[in-house]
Every structure is written in structure tokens, then in C-alpha cells.
Design a protein around this nucleic acid. Structure first.
Lengths: 174, 174
DNA sequence: TCTACTTGCTTCGAATTCGAAGCAGGGTTA
DNA sequence: TAACCCTGCTTCGAATTCGAAGCAAGTAGA
């Protein structure tokens, strides 16, 4: 067999690099716009958006964490900031005493309304200006199955280790 | 005019959300694999990869920073870690005394060789498993023009402000 | 040459993120 | 009911990132 089953050909490599760089630049531009227009982080914006789109205006902490951030503690921190700013409220869940329900306030909705036009402008200009309507449809058609595939598949066996910095010789030597 | 020129239609919204989530999940999976296989951050991996691919095995700090990270100080920090681990060396540039040239060491190349198979495996399984060869080509064909467009366009007028957390009433109230 | 501006990098403080550990409420089984 | 495990969230320490400020070397103009 000439190649291992996971070889990445040049075309794939190009798509992979472009994906990484595009999402990186896009995210950076979005963060700047949100900071200028409403003093929001992208994570905070995502939390508020998700709450705003919910029929009840609220979600459980865990559901928000799974959807937006990769750790529970990260959401605890952000929810604390948003609550302190009066953009959300936190209350114990009626059915489960240990669960916390997060709800958008009117101020939160107002802030979303304030930053949303600029947000759409940035996304439109940076991401969709070079893409036709059919291109956008094709892009969605390619990425949505990938997203579903990623959500289904666990990301390998999990055995976290220490990071570089500290622990003098973890691998390559001094 | 019914819509402002930057309106985002549902198809675009789907592509945008999928892009954000795909890159987020992919990056997270990659970071885990690199940590397990070689105790590397994605940023550190990108630095080593870029150096390895250079004919001289070296680059200036600024060029690395522009390509990989969004601040100079961030690269200074990472280069310090990599140098302490013996994966790169830093030396003053011959032509410009204030410029620092970063060069991969043999240990750095060896570490790249060590983590690269796992890296390709993750990218292949997570990103390209649901995509045919033509899909990958189409994805590259869509994203590469977007990347070039983003690199060309400045990200709006730059006027950074403070972030939420501190500065009691920056917007929404107490 | 001298002054002023620019460029390349580092240092510093603050903010964000994560994982591990801890705590309390829920659920299950004997 | 009691013992045990799972679930949901928070607290804590460490690591990473950025922007602002600072410093040294290069460059241009008078």
C-alpha cells in the first residue's frame, strides 16, 4: 500500500489551510467589531444570540457551554461577567435544583440589536463579498455535513497531558 | 431599497455558522492530538511547520507573527517557550541588528515528524471523511479566494476600546 | 551631523481559557 | 432508607493571549 489511509493530498491541504486562516481572520475581525460596537466578546455575543433566539429567552448553563465553549468553567466566568453587566440573569432551575437557568434581559436584547448590524456587515464584507449566492449555498452544503460529522465523532481517545512550559524535559530534551 | 447592502440571508447564515463551528471543533481536536503526541500547542506547531517548510529553516519574528498570531508579544512568548525547549534557536539578523531570526533545530524537525502523522490523521478523519475528492477541491476553490480577499482588506477602521469587566458602566448599566 | 520618525522586538499588566478539584442535588440499587 | 454514583455548577491555579508602553536600531530630512 503506497499511502497510509489518512494521507492528506495537496488539494486537501489547501482546503485545510484556507479553512484555518479564513476562520481565524474572520473571528479576529468579528471580535474587533463587537468590541467597538458594544464592548462584547465573541463568546459573550454567542451566548446572548443563543438566548435571544430561544423561545423562552433562556438556557441551562451546560447547554450553553456545550454549544459555545469547551469547558464549563469558561461559561461560568462569562455568565458572571454578563450577569454583572445586567445583560443576563441567573436563577435556579425549577425542575432541577442544581441546574442554573440563564436568561437574557431587555438590556441584553438591546445590546444584541445594537451590535447586530455591524456584525452582519463584517460577515458580509469579509466572508461573502467574494462569493456568489450559489457559492454560499455550496459552502453551506459542504460544511454542514462536516459539522454534523464532527459533532457525532468523539475526538480520539482522551488522555490529556501537561503542556510545554514547566516540566523541563517532557520530550525533545533541554 | 428593501435590505441594507450587508444583509445576510439564511443560506449565508448557515454557511457562516457551519464555518465557525467546524473550525472551532477542528481546532480543538487538533490541539488535543498535538498535546498528546508531542506536548505542542497549535500555535507552536504552526511556527515549527512554517520554519520547517522554509528553505533556510528560519524566519523573522515579525513574519511569523503576521502569519500565525495576531500580536508580536504573543510570538515573543511562544518563541521563548520553543527556544527553552530546544526546538528553535534565536539569533540576531545579519542585515538588520534589531531583527531576530528564528531557526528550527534538529529536535524541532524531529518533533514535527513525530506529531505529523497523528495530525494528518485527525484532519483527515474530522474534516475530510464526509467529503469526496471533488468536495475537497470545491471547498479549497471557495475558501482560497475568501482568504485572499481577507488578507487584502483591512478589518474596518481600527479604534480599540476597553473590554467588559472593569470600567463599571461601559454600556448597558450597572 | 543632528533631529525626528519608523521598525522590530520585549516587558508588563490585564483578561480569558481550560482542567482538576470540590460541593451539592438527583438517581439507583440493595 | 442507606450507600453509591452521576450530574451541574463553581472555585482555583496555571497557561496563553493581547494591547500599551518601552527600548534599541535603522532611516530620512534639514
Amino acid at each position: 500500500m503506497p499511502d497510509p489511509p489518512h494521507a492528506v493530498d495537496p488539494v486537501q491541504l489547501g482546503a485545510y489551510f484556507a479553512l484555518i486562516e479564513v476562520s481565524d481572520l474572520l473571528r479576529h475581525a468579528i471580535e474587533q467589531q463587537l468590541r467597538e460596537d458594544g464592548d462584547l466578546t465573541f463568546v459573550q455575543f454567542q451566548v446572548l444570540m443563543r438566548l435571544s433566539r430561544s423561545p423562552t429567552g433562556s438556557h441551562r448553563m451546560t447547554d450553553l457551554a456545550d454549544a459555545i465553549v469547551h469547558s464549563r468553567s469558561g461559561l461560568t466566568y462569562q455568565a458572571g461577567l454578563l450577569a454583572k453587566a445586567g445583560l443576563v440573569t441567573r436563577s435556579p432551575s425549577p425542575h432541577d435544583e442544581r441546574s442554573t437557568t440563564v436568561t437574557v434581559t431587555d438590556a441584553g436584547r438591546a445590546l444584541i440589536a445594537q451590535v447586530l448590524p455591524g456584525h452582519e456587515q463584517v460577515v458580509s464584507q469579509m466572508l461573502f463579498e467574494p462569493l456568489s449566492r450559489d457559492d454560499a449555498r455550496a459552502l453551506a452544503g459542504l460544511l454542514e455535513p462536516v459539522r454534523d460529522h464532527m459533532r457525532a465523532a468523539p475526538p480520539r481517545s482522551a488522555t490529556p497531558r501537561r503542556r510545554r512550559g514547566r516540566s523541563s524535559s517532557s520530550r525533545g530534551g533541554p
